[in-house]
Nucleic acid binder design. Structure first.
Length: 103
DNA sequence: AGTATGACGGTTA
DNA sequence: CTAACCGCCATAC
């Protein structure tokens, strides 16, 4: 899924972006949660979409199942999450408190 | 139509 | 806690 950023988003990509765009401030979802909510794709495919088009949405609200934002933008994500009042424990989001179920 | 590629995830050691 | 391994699935080519 290496569509360059700026390339037209595929239908699947738009679906992913729609979900991410709905995650409330201070809440997060894991890559797997997004795929599960859509009933399509997998954590990997969601990550690929974020890599290509994440800049269009609140990308910092999508984290790994461990609660840790992915490595390349770890510091930036933590800064943004802290700024929006997301509960953190060190470099991990407190998923028990901040996980959004899509409702 | 087949192969390669990930902002991933669960399991096992 | 770290590391290896394998499954995952839409896309790109």
């Amino acid at each position: 899924m290496r569509a360059r950023a700026g390339a037209p988003p595929t239908p699947y990509a738009r679906q992913v972006l729609d979900v991410v765009d709905r995650i409330p401030r201070g809440k997060v979802m894991t890559y797997g949660d997004v795929a599960e909510l859509m009933g399509r794709g997998s954590p990997r495919t969601v990550g690929a979409v974020m890599s290509d088009h994440g800049h269009e949405v609140p990308w910092q609200r999508v984290v790994q199942a461990s609660g840790r934002p992915a490595e390349p933008y770890l510091q930036e994500a933590l800064r943004l999450l802290a700024a929006e009042g997301c509960p953190l424990h060190g470099e991990r989001v407190d998923l028990a408190a901040a996980r959004w179920d899509g409702r």
